[in-house]
Design a protein around this nucleic acid. Structure first.
Lengths: 196, 196
DNA sequence: GGCTGCATGTAAGTCGTTACATGATTTA
DNA sequence: TAAATCATGTAACGACTTACATGCAGCC
C-alpha cells in the first residue's frame, strides 16, 4: 500500500530513472520540481536514501568514472542508480490508487514522470484527479447553498476565487485527457461509431 | 515570533472572534474554510484548545444559556470565547511578518479574517504575498532559461501550468490591492495632490 | 590561508494524524 | 431501543524541519 511518506521515494525513483545521481544533485532537482512550496531538507533526503538502499530499491554506482560529467572523480560523493526492484516499485507507486490524500499530494510528482509510464496509467491518474476535484467542487457548492446567510465579504471572495481556480484546473485536466485520448484515437480510427 | 504551528491558533482566534463556539463546531467550520486540502483532526484541535486555555487566550463561557442557538443547554459541550489577551494575540498574528513559509501557509486564513483587521494590515498582507509570488516567478523563469536543454514534455507542461496559475493569482492580488486602495481614497478625498 | 560552495550526515524537536476510547443526545 | 450524530479526549506514531557537525575542493 502507498503510505503517506512515499512521496520522496517516488520522486527519487523517478529522477534516478532519468540517470544516476548523488544526493546533493537530487535535492537540487527535487527543490526545482516541488519548488512551489517548501524546500526538502537533507535531514529528510539522506535518511530516505539510506532506507531505500536497505530496501534494495537503489544501489551505489561502483567504478566507471566516465559516466559523470567531469572526469576528475570527487571521492566524497556517492552516486545512486535504481535497481530492478526499484523500477518495479516506481511503476507500482505511479499507478497505485491509495487513500485520496496521497493521490492528491503526489499528483504533481506523478505527472512529472508521465513519460516513464504508459497511456493507460496516465489516463487513470488524470481522470482520478479530475473526478476528485469535481467532487470537492460539488460538495463546496452544496454547502455554499445551505449556509447562504450572514456571509463575510472576504470569506465569500476567498471561496469564489478557490472555486474558480479548481474549475480552471478541471478544464486543464480535461484538455490533457483529450490530448492523451487524441493520440490514442489517431492510431485507432474510430472503433464503433456509425457516423456516415 | 510566529511559529509554524500557530496556524490553528490563528484560525481558532479568528472564528471565536465571530462569536463563542465549542470544539466540535470549530472543527466543522475550520474544515469548511481550510477545506481544499486536508481535514483537521480532533487530535490536533483539542490539545490546541487546552494549550490556548492555559495561555489565557481563550476561556470557557459560564452561564447565560440564552447566547446559544437552542435554549436547551447540553451539559457535555464546552463553549469558548476569546479573552482580551486572545484578541491582542489575534491582531499580532494577523499583522506579523515571520518566516516566509509561515506567511504563505497562512495567507488564506489571514485573508478569511480580513474583516476583523484594518486596511493598513490588509494591504501589508496582500502586498507581501504578491511580492513573494512575483519573486518565485522570476526565480523559476531564470532557472528555466538556464536549463533549457533536454526538457521532458510533461515536465514542461507542468511548469507552464504552474507559472500560469501563479500569474493569475498575482493578478487577483493586484485587483484586491487596488480595491482596498480605492475604498481608502474614496473615503479620503486626495490629501496632498494639487489638481486644481 | 581563508572563504565559498559542494557533499554527507545526525539528533532533537515540532506538528499533526490515526486509532482508540468514552459517553450524551437526538431521531427512526 | 437501536442507530446515527454530537462531543470530547488521549496515546502512539509518522514525517519532516532545524540546527548542528564534518570535511573536501576550488578560487582569490
Amino acid at each position: 500500500m502507498a503510505r503517506r511518506g512515499d512521496t520522496i521515494e517516488l520522486a527519487v525513483l523517478g529522477l534516478l530513472h532519468e540517470g544516476p545521481m548523488h544526493g546533493y544533485e537530487l535535492r537540487k532537482r527535487l527543490n526545482l520540481m516541488l519548488g512551489w512550496g517548501r524546500l526538502l531538507s537533507y535531514g529528510s533526503l539522506y535518511p530516505a536514501l539510506k532506507k531505500m538502499l536497505r530496501g534494495n530499491l537503489i544501489e551505489e554506482v561502483t567504478g566507471t568514472p566516465s559516466s559523470a560529467g567531469s572526469p576528475t572523480s570527487r571521492r566524497t560523493r556517492i552516486t545512486y542508480q535504481v535497481t530492478e526492484k526499484g523500477t518495479a516499485e516506481f511503476h507500482r507507486l505511479m499507478s497505485e490508487v491509495g487513500p485520496t490524500a496521497w493521490e492528491d499530494d503526489n499528483f504533481d510528482i506523478r505527472f512529472r514522470f508521465f513519460s516513464s509510464t504508459d497511456m493507460e496509467i496516465r489516463l487513470r491518474v488524470l481522470e482520478g484527479r479530475r473526478s476528485r476535484l469535481q467532487e470537492r467542487l460539488d460538495r463546496v457548492q452544496r454547502e455554499l447553498a445551505m449556509t447562504q446567510k450572514e456571509v463575510d465579504r472576504y470569506a465569500t471572495e476567498l471561496q469564489r476565487h478557490g472555486v474558480e481556480s479548481v474549475e480552471r484546473e478541471v478544464r486543464w485536466l480535461s484538455d490533457l485527457i483529450n490530448a492523451e485520448r487524441g493520440t490514442g484515437l489517431s492510431a485507432t480510427p474510430q472503433p464503433a461509431t456509425d457516423n456516415e
